[in-house]
Simulated scan of single mutants.
Amino acid sequence: MTTERHPPTPSRSPRGEVFVSADELARLLTGDRPPIVLDIRLANDGPDGRPEYAAGHIPGAVFVDVAADLQSEPGGLAGRRPLPDIARLQSRAREWGVNDGDAVVVYDSAFGTKAGRAWWVLRWAGVADVRLLDGGLSAWAGRGHEVSTVEPAPPPGTVTLSAGHLPVLDADGAAEYAAAGRLLDARAPEVYRGEPAEPRRPRTGHIPGAISAPTHGNLTATGLLAGEDTLRRRFAGLGADGTAPVGVYCGGGVWAAHEVAVLAGLGIPAGLFVGSFSAWEADPRREVTVGDDPGR
């Protein structure tokens, strides 16, 4: 009797462990065990992103609200988006239909820069297989894949979560990384410089010693992730060549999470300062630097 041999499943590259293309996701969704797809919306001009989700999403994708699901109560030295309570996150993940061992794909309508928060939080909570849709919803629709307005009702999952599976920086840790020239600021360049001053914010500028590394600089003009060689050159020029871990922060721990994902795709370890600048600026003991110079 002849035994049929199937070719082994090719191992993913580090980039393939973190990102998935629209066409690959479409193929996976027709498989025997499709991934759980989570639609991550963070509205810029409203209380939540559900209206955007309702207007069109990947078929079967479950709505996840960053403010309600991926953080705890903000304020003070905890910053704008503290880590979520792990028990509540587990409850919500089960409502999304996630089981232990499930693959999860997260996406948004902002080229992944907001869904990166979900990638990071779920990986931090112990979900091993989480990937970001490269280019987000626009890449999906741009490849001609279906967009739906039907909200799914997934069966409850049984996933068990635990905290601490990714490195986290507090303000002291961020200061140490900055002093060593290994803290990246993922915000827009003008925000890094402290322009313009905002009356509603106690202070503007950046953590002394931090290096400007806007997360949008990791994307092409069409919102797709830049090529690996391009990204390696970019981060090497910023002092993140993989020889030592780096830290990343932004305003509230969203864009920085995307940059941590990009670095993970290059095999470069990075810790997230979850409180980010919103936590740093709330502490009057912490100095702030304005302008282009890191100020180390």
Rank of each mutant, 00 (worst) to 15 (best):
V147Q: 15
F235N: 03
L132R: 02
E198F: 09
L272G: 05
T113V: 13
G136Y: 04
L25A: 04
L77S: 12
G46M: 12
D170F: 11
W96G: 00
G271C: 01
L70K: 05
A110G: 08
A178P: 02
A179Q: 12
P167V: 13
G252F: 02
G142V: 06
W120G: 00
G252S: 13
P51K: 11
G291Q: 07
D134E: 05
H57C: 04
V37Q: 03
A261G: 10
P154I: 05
L42V: 06
A78N: 09
P34N: 11
D23R: 15
G101Q: 02
A78Y: 05
V18N: 01
R232D: 01
P74W: 10
A118D: 04
P154Q: 04
E4V: 13
D129A: 15
P245T: 07
R193W: 07
P214Q: 10
A125T: 09
P189D: 10
L133F: 12
G205I: 04
Y107D: 02
H216F: 13
A43Y: 08
T3H: 14
H165P: 11
P59C: 09
A226E: 10
G265A: 02
W119R: 08
V18F: 02
A270D: 01
G49C: 08
L266C: 02
T220L: 02
A153R: 15
Y192T: 06
G295Y: 04
R92S: 13
L225W: 03
G31M: 06
G76W: 12
G291L: 09
D39Y: 08
P284T: 08
E259M: 13
S148K: 12
D39R: 05
V66M: 10
V150K: 11
V106A: 05
S91N: 14
P284F: 10
D292M: 11
S21L: 11
L137D: 00
D100V: 04
R232T: 03
E146M: 15
A270G: 07
V159I: 15
A118N: 03
L132P: 01
H258E: 06
E259S: 11
L89V: 08
D185M: 04
V290G: 09
V248T: 09
D85V: 03
A261T: 03
G253S: 11
R182Q: 15
L184T: 06
F277V: 13
V62G: 08
R286N: 14
G223D: 06
P199Y: 08
S148R: 11
T222H: 08
R5W: 10
E52C: 11
